[in-house]
């Protein structure tokens, strides 16, 4: 599904990622944890195609295709989805209109007929239930005036609509109260299948009680310092990140 090989990246000449190697297979959930500034969100942004970063070395293959050869929209149409840490408010563009455009572009790419208005509405209603979203959101401007929790639910709703094969959840748990966290995680779990994969980027272990990872990676100073099973997340929760930092300094 996803292969990251020797990825180095920098912004304004400052190196953020210093050699990332990561393989995600179909059906797997990977968690990437790490302290602030370790490069977690940078990795997510680079995978989604944000242009602020300069990739200085390495390769990323998504279903065997070089993602750096693809525009952000092509990556999305190929099945890569980023749930934004900070979803953007877009006044004047309704959620329905936006999603209809997006879904039909993705369908076109997959050789499917565009959905007509009725089928689309039915699909929206069905998927909105996953994250307990009210249909009154459809006609509202995208994310405008949404609470933090509503924005994150809207991200998972979009994920449900676009049916990606690889979803990257960038700090989806940040700013969520316990109810919203439950709704969002349940949504993600319902969308899970043996053919799609998820990368959960988070600072805290909390989310991983709900979305149980197969593999946990610890990112620190632009490198994956440790990889383990779900128990690694618990260990991090108990011991914090300091022991990883110490270990990393010892290895350096």
């Amino acid at each position: 599904m996803l292969q990251i090989i020797g990825l180095h990246a920098s912004i304004n000449g400052k190196e953020i990622l210093k050699g990332i190697d990561l393989t995600v297979n179909p059906g797997e959930i990977h968690a990437i944890m790490g302290p602030n500034g370790s490069g977690k969100s940078t990795l997510a942004s680079i995978l989604a195609g944000r242009e602020d970063y300069e990739v200085t070395a390495g390769t990323v293959l998504f279903n065997g295709k070089d993602v750096f050869e693809m525009s952000p929209e092509e990556r999305s149409r190929e099945g890569l989805f980023l749930a934004f840490q900070y979803p953007v408010e877009i006044p004047g563009v309704s959620t329905a209109n936006f999603l209809k455009t997006a879904v039909n572009e993705v369908r076109k790419h997959r050789g499917m007929e565009p959905l007509d208005a009725m089928d689309f509405l039915t699909l929206m209603r069905e998927k909105a239930k996953l994250v307990e979203m009210d249909s009154s959101f459809f006609s509202r401007s995208l994310n405008e005036g949404f609470s933090g929790g509503e924005k994150k639910r809207n991200e998972i709703f979009q994920m449900a609509m676009l049916e990606p094969t690889l979803s990257i959840l960038d700090e989806t748990d940040s700013g969520l109260d316990i109810d919203a966290l439950r709704i969002v995680s349940e949504g993600v779990n319902k969308l899970k299948s043996s053919s799609n994969s998820t990368i959960v980027i988070t600072h805290y272990q909390r989310l991983l009680n709900y979305i149980v990872p197969d593999v946990v990676h610890v990112l620190y100073k632009g490198r994956i310092m440790k990889t383990g099973g779900k128990e690694l997340a618990l260990e991090l929760e108990e011991r914090g990140y300091d022991w990883i930092k110490t270990e990393s300094e010892e290895t350096v």
Partner: peptide
């Protein structure tokens, strides 16, 4: 708004359409 443009493109909407969507809304 570059952020808004990236957001739309990250959902599969081509650059030209994404720009048109934002400007039409404006």
């Amino acid at each position: 708004d570059e952020e808004a443009l990236f957001y739309l493109r990250a959902r599969g909407i081509g650059e030209r359409n994404a720009k048109a969507l934002l400007l039409t809304a404006f």
